[in-house]
Structures are given as C-alpha cells and as structure tokens.
Design a protein around this nucleic acid. Sequence first.
DNA 1: TATGAATGAGTTTTCATTCAT
DNA 2: TATGAATGAAAACTCATTCAT
Lengths: 195, 195, 195, 195
Amino acid sequence: MTASPQHHSSRSTKRQVIIDTAERLFAEHGYDATSTARIATEAGVPSGLVFYHFATKLDLLLAVVQERPAPSEVLRSAARGRTVRQRLRAVVAKMAEELENDRAVRIIVFREAQGRPEIASRAAEMFADASATVADVLADADDVVADRARVQTAAELVVSRVFLDTVALGQLEPATKRHAAMIDLIVETLTSTPG
Amino acid sequence: MTASPQHHSSRSTKRQVIIDTAERLFAEHGYDATSTARIATEAGVPSGLVFYHFATKLDLLLAVVQERPAPSEVLRSAARGRTVRQRLRAVVAKMAEELENDRAVRIIVFREAQGRPEIASRAAEMFADASATVADVLADADDVVADRARVQTAAELVVSRVFLDTVALGQLEPATKRHAAMIDLIVETLTSTPG
Amino acid sequence: MTASPQHHSSRSTKRQVIIDTAERLFAEHGYDATSTARIATEAGVPSGLVFYHFATKLDLLLAVVQERPAPSEVLRSAARGRTVRQRLRAVVAKMAEELENDRAVRIIVFREAQGRPEIASRAAEMFADASATVADVLADADDVVADRARVQTAAELVVSRVFLDTVALGQLEPATKRHAAMIDLIVETLTSTPG
Amino acid sequence: MTASPQHHSSRSTKRQVIIDTAERLFAEHGYDATSTARIATEAGVPSGLVFYHFATKLDLLLAVVQERPAPSEVLRSAARGRTVRQRLRAVVAKMAEELENDRAVRIIVFREAQGRPEIASRAAEMFADASATVADVLADADDVVADRARVQTAAELVVSRVFLDTVALGQLEPATKRHAAMIDLIVETLTSTPG
DNA sequence: TATGAATGAGTTTTCATTCAT
DNA sequence: TATGAATGAAAACTCATTCAT
C-alpha cells in the first residue's frame, strides 16, 4: 500500500495548500496578525481542516518554516565562473532572483524568531547554511589568496547584507546598485595578500 | 528618604512612562503580542490613559520609534583613536554597548517595518544614519587609503552585520567573537591600495 | 407537559433566536443602547456566536429589519366589509392589533433610518407597501366615489398617522379615540363627489 | 447688575455654542452615538466645560430640546390668505421651509423619546402645539364649513404627515409633490357640509 | 468660569480551538 | 478526512464623568 502521507507531494493536497497560504499570509502580515480563519478562507478549505492537520497555529508556523528546502543547493548550483568576482556576482544575483520563491519564509523566520526557540534555530540554520554555501563558492575560485577564516567572514558579511536587505530594507530600493560596490570590496580583500 | 512610588524617572510624565513601557514590551514580545492592557498594567497607569494619549495602538508604536534620538551622536563621539582598526573597534564595541539603550527600538523597527511605511522609512533612516556615521568615523582615520565610495560600502557592511546580529541573530551566540574577524577584513581593504 | 427550556419556537435555529432577541431589545431600548453582550445573554447564546452569524452589529440590525415579511398580506386579508368606513376601521384596527408582531420592527426602522441608507430605504418600502395596501382596500369598497389619486393620498394620510402613533406618539395616549374621527374625515372625502 | 444668565442671548456664549453643536450632532448621528468629547471638540471648547455647564449628558439633551421656541408662532404668522386652501398651503410650505431651523430638534425629539419621559412629553407638546396651530389657522378661514372636532382631526393628519416626512421619510423624495394632493383632500372635507 | 489629564467600566470585535456529524 | 457551527477568553477602543488646578 502506497498511501503514505506525502507531505511534499507536488500535487497540492489540501494540507499543502494550507501551508502555502499560511506562508504567504505570515510573510505579508506577520504570524500574529494572520488568523487561522483567514488562512482557511484564502486556502479555500473549511476552517476546521486547519486544526485537523495542525494541532495548533504554532505547529502550522513550524510546518511553514521547516517543510522548505534550504537555499544552499540552489545557491551552490548558481555559482558559475572562475574568479571570486564572477562567483560572488552570480551568488548575489541568484539571491536577489530567489526573492519570490524563498523570501517569504526568510521574512517569517527572522520576524518570528524572537522568543520562539524552534524558529530562532531555523534562522541560525538558514544563516549558517547560506554563509557556508557562499564561503564554499568563494573558496573554490581560482584567484582566492586568503585563509579560510577570512573567506568565512567575507561570506557572512555578504549574507548579512542580503538578508537584511530582504527582511527589512528590501522595500526601499532595489539593492542591486549597492551590491556592485560591496562585491568589489570583498573581492579586493580576498585576492590581496594579507599584510 | 521619601519612598514615593516613582518607579520611573522623576521628571517623566505618564505619557512617557507609557512609551518607555511599550518600547520594552514591543521589543521583548513583538507589537502584536503585546496587549495595551499589559502595557498599562506594567506602566502603572489605568488602561484608558493609553488611549487618551495615543488614539490607536499603532500611534503608540509610531511614538515609540519616532520619539527617540538618532544614534549617530553617541556613535560618533565614541570613535576615538587614530587608525581605522581602532576606530572600527570602538564603534562596533559601542554599538554592542548601546544594546540596552537603543536595541529595543532597533528590534521593533526592523520587526514591524513589514507593511508599515512609516516604520519602514524609519528603518531606512536608522540604517542610513548609522552607515553615514560609521563612514565618517572611518574616513577621518589617519591610515585610510580608499575612495569615499568604498568607505561607505564598508560602513554599510558593518552596520548590516551588527543590525542583523541585534535583530535576529543576537540570540544565538555572543557576536563579539565574529566581530574581530570582520574588523580585520574591513581594515585590510581600506588600508590597501586598490589594484 | 415537558418543561423543556425552549424559550423560542422549537424550530428556530440559534441564528433566528439572536435575530428575535435583537428585534425586541432594539425596539425597547434602541440600537445604540443595546449591547451585543446583552443580546447574547438574553438569547441564551455565547457572545461570540452573535459575531459568528453577523459580522458586525450593523449587519445584525439589517438582518432584523430585512428578514421580515412585509405587513401587506396580513393587512389585506383583514379588510372585510363593503363600505369604505367598514374597511378603514378594519384596517386601522388590524394595524393596532399587529403591534406585537410588527411594531418592533417598525419602531426600529423609523428610529434608525437617519443616516443609514439601507434602513431608510426599508422605511420607505414599509411606508409605500402599507399605503398601497390601504389604498387597494379602499378602492375595492362599494361606496367609493373618488379618483385613484385621492384614494392613494387618503391611504398615505392614514398610514402616516398610524406610523407616527406607533413610533413616537403611541406612548402618550391610546390612539384609538382619535382614530374614529380620522376615519370619519377620510370617509367623507372619499364618498363625496369632488366639487 | 444685569449679569443674569442669558441662556438665549444672541451673542453665542460658550454654553450656547455647546447646545448648538450638540443639537447638530444629536440630529445627525443620534444621542447615543454622539460623545461628549466630540461635542466639545466641534464646539471648540475644552471637554471639561461641557460638564461644567451640564451635570450629565442627559441634561445637555434636555437643554437642547427645551431651550428652543415652539414652532407655533412662526407657523401662525405664516398663515396668510382667506381660504382653507390658501392657509393650508402656506402652513405646509412654511413647515417645509422651517426644516433647516427646526428640523434638527424635531428629529432628536422623536428619535430619543423612547424610554425618556421628559423627551416624550416634549414630543407630545410639539405635536399638540403644531396641531393646535394648524387647527387655529384653518378655523379662521372664511370658507370652513365644519365642526371644531373635524378641523382638529384634519390638523393632526397634516402634522402627522409632515412630521413623519421630516423624521423618517424626508430623505427619500421632496415631499412637496404629495403635499398638494393632501391639501386637496383636507380642503374638500372641511368645505363640504357633513352628511 | 475654565482646563485637560485621568479613570475604569463597558463596548464591539477577534480568534484559536473544539466538537458533533 | 472533512465540515462548519459553537465557544469564551481576550483584544482594542470608547466614553461619561471626575478632579486638581
């Protein structure tokens, strides 16, 4: 019998529709400001079904932030090119491009981390994962002249900037302009022999 | 000795007590998760007084984030020392030290910016202000060998990292360890002749 | 005999119980002076149920005034007799008798029409409906010697007087005394050849 | 010393401004739906002043409905002409014209009479006063052929219609059209020998 | 006579959650 | 699995009234 519960099935079960709708609403309005009734309505399911699938509203939040692939693979595969500069550009561009896929969860995670250990650890995970990915991508470049610690630090700076843009500043202006200068700064450091 | 029940500053009006209490609670638990009743109780005022001074809860939030001095002065004055490294260390240390004064508002502003234009613009203001201050501090160092654009970019990277630490990642580990490596990275760039 | 706690009709859903209770309280004390909590208590339902069935208190008011049959049928069927006088007497008497069925809604509608278009149009509807009914009743009398316009006007005068008695003046004195004279006045006009 | 409290002085004391503002707001929104704070704001006086002049909100309502001249004089003086028809036309026209002066109080009185004896008796007073005035006006016409009781009844019919128009139906259509037919009906009765 | 901050009970409304079907 | 009425605690907000100045 193959009637196993397929949580990630690509055919949207009602359970998945609830998760997707919750993700959108949590990102747009915040967790507290989104009622389960509204989630049910916009998902097109009866209100009782939300609590059939998720014992509490918090469980639904956890499902939203956990049942998502980490961004690492997508980022790693985007890093083409030989030089630090090329690779950084590709990665930062990909992060910007991913906004519409992944941004919602990132916003949710960083907004709701306060006082919720499960979410906070997911935030740390996402940050560490993204940083490690960028560090890997940079370390593999042909022109890097830098120790691993410095590469890791550079990666974390990039990720900080992009995450902050996404979560809080993204609404203000397209971040792409500033990213160019940022890339130059990082590249210069990683490709110069430390004095 | 007069054991009068003045829990707050002797000059604070009740209006200010409400703002201070709201700031603390909004930072600790978030705007939505903080009831006006709780603010009133912890401020030691009747619940109606909150709405006498602030027509809506949102107006109270705006008062909290607007009736605060920008952090620039305090940061600028903290930057002593001659070299980029010294100044950066002083500024980053000061930012960490300022947590108890300013952190609450920063957390609030970045958490609640989503979908609230007034808050979002305040977030941008705080970010721009802090970045400009750090850039000024760095530009005045004796050993800077870099154009203004690169200094500005470096400042923004610092501020991004510190803000993100404060807002979302601060709970995970003491940020101080990583700050050292970050400072090295920035310093190196600003003191080397661009190739 | 089963002393079951069915205060209302055995077939009434809780929604209908809420409407019935609201109708009574709105008529007795006015819309603004009736709290939804009191409606819930007197209807014997939890307070939340009111807002499950009616999104706002105003929606409940609209339901009260809209989910009622027009009084025309009951009035029309009451008009027995051959002469204008007989029919007028029967209709006016029936209007007085209907107080306990219909009066509440009439009071509500005319009290709350000010500034509420939906209610005002319902008021106009009730007035027009009652006037048309009375006009029909009169026109069918054997002894009418009058054109349709005059019958309609007479009907509107009757309805004006009865409605105003019901709504605002009914509390002052039993209206029945004056009704006799009013009937005479109308009858005389409708049965005399216009000069 | 002539510093007697001139409640009706044409120079608007603050007390009178409060009454005038309350009259307007009570008529527009109803007594319950008008807060004393709003009255104070729109009157341009501090909120405390309302309760300096009027012990309770209800006292202010009473002042609004009592410190107004009865409409009789104005109506009586308007009745020029010799015939019933001429006089009726003049009176009804004057009633319509008076809308902007007197209408507010009439609306208030009839809306708020329910359950408030002082207001209810004022409603009765206004109705009786208007009816008596119209009856007087009619009785003095040269062509009346009717006993006093019938004149009084006719007057009450007129007043009922006009008051109901004012209070509840006035918003629907200009009442003037229908008034013509009503006048004809009344005139006919009062000028024909009762059979 | 005037002022405006202060008070707390009351109001409408929201909402996560339960449950009988 | 699915449904939608039901529940009651808690939320934001209102407001007549008081009072020290």
